[in-house]
Design a protein around this nucleic acid. Sequence first.
DNA 1: GCGGTCTGCCTCGGACCGAAGCCGGTGGGA
DNA 2: TCCCACCGGCTTCGGTCCGAGGCAGACCGC
Lengths: 142, 142
Amino acid sequence: MKVSTRGDYASRALLSLALHGATQTPTSVRDIAERTALPQPYLEQILLALKGAGLVRSKRGVGGGYVLAREPEEISLAQIVAAVDGPIVAGDFGEPHENGACDHEGQCVLLAVWAEVGEQIRNKLQNLTLADMVTRSTGTAA
Amino acid sequence: MKVSTRGDYASRALLSLALHGATQTPTSVRDIAERTALPQPYLEQILLALKGAGLVRSKRGVGGGYVLAREPEEISLAQIVAAVDGPIVAGDFGEPHENGACDHEGQCVLLAVWAEVGEQIRNKLQNLTLADMVTRSTGTAA
DNA sequence: GCGGTCTGCCTCGGACCGAAGCCGGTGGGA
DNA sequence: TCCCACCGGCTTCGGTCCGAGGCAGACCGC
């Protein structure tokens, strides 16, 4: 019942890009790692997953690095977490109301509940974009 | 980002007790395991944890077993899950706005978000009692 | 009251799996 | 030729899931 560090790290990395307004000039993995205090090799493969999901673009060679693929308003935390942690669900015990999944008492009722919880989390995270985070970050605290 | 099987199993077991209206006569672990199709030894220690949390009472010897400690209306899913899975949170990366926790950009903003998500899940599960589940179970599907 | 049996209580341990993180090599760009 | 993204594989670590086995309390028949 918790977000893995991958989700947290990925969010921090992209938030870092958004904070520096780096929608054009690439930022190297090393710079991101320094600014966010994250382990560099680990962050590397996380960024790779984010690229695979189409959330960032990369540029190789000298002066290369990563750039947000879309505007911060268009990137939600749900997309980030889903990209590195897989689909956002609460409990993976199959689907309710399907073949032999509900052959014991109360089972499919609980499955429905977990599904509702997962959906609620998704809704929450879909409404939080990187732009919102930037606003929160600059508006409230350090 | 998911409920462990412990939480699911514990919920199923208590729901089974509630469905059979066993607020007085004890039900043995073996019977619960049969009705819910759960591994009996595993279920045993889960029930032990639930007893430690004060959600069920036990009776030893012949004709012994487990009984709900309170009325189904008084037992929420949040209590059950918290009893077997620990506190319900989304991401355990420390607390926001404390000593050196927010010394890197955007960190405490994200911490606040995870905290919000966790709180939302807790609220949802606190509003779902065993009595609600019984109603859902008997009212809608098999 | 006494032993047997039924049950919960408790602990130990191990298989299994995913998370977390490091490393070396490859190849494309300036 | 240097820089840096890319690409795997690989290890370590801890948690989950579950079984085995023994101990202790409760009720029974006698």
